[in-house]
């Protein structure tokens, strides 16, 4: 297929997934703020989120001091923030628009309708009780997009590049969600097996739809070690890093071309380190440091995929 088409599909999927994960992260923060009225704590939480999604500096420059309402406006609706949910949905739709002929009608209409509808929400329309329903809506639209893609698109390269975008983005986002929680905990002195604050940990699990899965897998109280293990190393957990990398590696194997050997090797290497890794080793390195390194490797993989498939520098 055309490299440019693959590029648009890949970014369509990445922006859709990114919007979903932003909504997931915000939903947790917002729910926790309803639970805990401590103002400084709430502010801290939003500062952390802005940092974790790489928007702290742009936020500070545009909006100044962090407050819950301004942070929500910035991450959810701001047109000035290229990383906002609003802008992600716009870009997802623009990428889809550029290749609408490659998509099934249903897929295009789903992304187009999402974009048309998101404009219903916005800074002028956000009574507090609507926030959770907005986050729910974003998640729902993302589920719908994936379902329509899964249910209607031809099993060909177009679908492969769409999934490649989805899983690479999800790997990145899950790592960031984890880091948001583990980074403030520091490393050495922590008791990884102590039952932490139940609400904090269950909120984290819920943000990646893993609360019930945790219960089913461990049938036990929630501990930081198990949360890390579940979201990093469990292949059966759909949003875990291992699951994402399994998908990325398998997809790269199918779309491989003459110059993509090294990219495949690197994806395989990350995958193997997750498949055969142990959570104790991760905790020993320090989970924050480990996650940062993981994010770098994912970024590197993204660049290599772009160079090998999406915008080939040379053609012959």
């Amino acid at each position: 297929m055309l490299s440019r088409t693959a590029d648009h599909l890949y970014w369509m999927a990445r922006y859709t997934e990114r919007a979903e994960n932003l909504a997931r992260m915000m939903d947790v923060n917002y729910r926790m703020s309803l639970l805990r009225q401590d103002e400084e704590g709430v502010r801290q939480r939003w500062s952390t989120m802005l940092t974790i999604v790489g928007q702290y500096d742009s936020y500070a420059a545009a909006r100044g001091a962090v407050s819950q309402s301004a942070a929500i406006e910035w991450i959810a609706w701001s047109r000035d923030n290229p990383g906002s949910i609003h802008e992600c949905l716009r870009r997802a739709r623009e990428n889809a628009h550029a290749v609408r002929g490659t998509l099934t009608t249903e897929t295009w209409e789903t992304l187009n309708a999402t974009w048309l509808e998101v404009q219903r929400f916005g800074p002028t329309h956000r009574p507090d009780q609507d926030l959770s329903s907005f986050f729910e809506w974003v998640k729902f639209r993302s589920h719908l997009a994936r379902g329509v893609i899964q249910g209607t698109m031809l099993r060909n390269e177009a679908l492969k590049f769409t999934w490649l975008g989805t899983y690479l983005e999800r790997a990145d986002n899950t790592a960031r969600i984890l880091d948001a929680k583990f980074e403030p905990m520091g490393s050495a002195a922590t008791d990884w097996d102590a039952a932490g604050d139940y609400y904090e940990w269950s909120a984290l699990l819920r943000s990646v739809s893993a609360f019930q899965i945790y219960r089913r897998v461990y049938s036990d109280r929630i501990t930081p070690r198990r949360v890390a293990e579940l979201l990093i190393l469990r292949d059966a957990m759909p949003r875990s890093l291992l699951r994402c990398l399994t998908q990325v590696r398998d997809t790269l194997e199918v779309v491989a071309n003459e110059q993509s050997g090294e990219t495949e090797r690197r994806a395989g290497e990350i995958h193997a380190s997750l498949l055969y890794g142990r959570i104790d080793d991760v905790l020993e390195v320090g989970i924050h440091a480990w996650l940062l390194q993981f994010l770098d490797r994912i970024a590197d993989l993204g660049q290599r995929i772009a160079q090998d498939f999406l915008v080939p520098a040379t053609t012959h």
Partner: peptide, 21 residues
Amino acid sequence: ELVEGQDLYVEDESIYMRTTQ
């Protein structure tokens, strides 16, 4: 395929499109 100019190039008076393969 829906192509733009940038997707095509000419070599030996033949037209090719740039694909992932």
